[in-house]
Nucleic acid binder design. Structure first.
Lengths: 130, 130
DNA sequence: TGACTATATAACTATACAGTTATATAGTGC
DNA sequence: GCACTATATAACTGTATAGTTATATAGTCA
């Protein structure tokens, strides 16, 4: 978990070429699981530890049915882990690499925003907005 | 570019919480751009350097119109850079972090596949398949 | 100029899926 | 058993978009 990005990149190139048609579809579906604002919001809400469906529903501002559907999908892709205790069901981030993924994306977007100053505001830190 | 994944993760957590509604949508769209098998195939084909639309059309097995559409989209998200020379238009990977993204995803899927042996075959290296 | 090639785009179809509403399932405590 | 709460799911609607076909645009060369 402490290998450098540079070596990761090299590892990547060899792995990437090894991906066949079916694997590409699999990878694409995985990205698709992360390609929904509401799901990102849910993952975001899970950063500081597990939460049950009710909590996530409230935090995300979605409906219970909708959040439940998203959680089911996230669990299918092993992005979150599910654990029922009593009548509640608790979800937690399954793998910290989810955050690494988001970091890379946010980093890229951050760089791009230096060229588009008006969108840069999107990344005002929570401290500044409070 | 040589900071460790561990520190990236920490950086990530602070950044992630700073993302507001609009930024989440932006990140989601970015993931969506990567969530198509054909686009991944095109990016894959660009790994060993720039190629024009005809070459990419042939390599990907898609139609010219379809590949052109995908390339336009990839360029919009700054995943590829466009450069026309004569009647040809050459595309190249805009940013190596695209590969880092894929590495993280492929790594995750790789781990998951140790649990699902039947899907593991998907990752047979190209040497083995030839 | 016109013929030829490469790329982009417009218009269309079919499919996938996010979100909604209503209902089912399952656990708890009486 | 019943009432209550939490979560999941079924059925539906609307929207977004991948892929197709046909056409437009633009560069090259005679």
């Amino acid at each position: 978990m402490s290998i450098s990005i540079k070596s990761l990149h090299i590892t990547m190139e060899s792995k990437m070429s090894a991906l066949n048609e079916q694997a590409l579809e699999y990878v694409a579906k995985y990205f698709k699981a992360l390609a929904e604002p509401m799901r990102l919001k849910v993952l975001n809400a899970l950063q500081d530890g597990e939460k049950n469906v009710s909590q996530l529903t409230q935090l995300s501002g979605g409906t219970q049915a909708n959040i439940s559907k998203h959680l089911t999908l996230l669990a299918q892709y092993n992005l979150v882990k599910r654990e029922s205790r009593g009548t509640n069901v608790y979800y937690r981030i399954a793998d910290p690499s989810v955050y690494e993924l988001c970091e890379l994306v946010c980093g890229q977007i951050g760089n791009r925003m230096t060229l588009e100053e008006d969108i840069k505001k999107l990344f005002i830190t929570s401290n500044q907005t409070e």
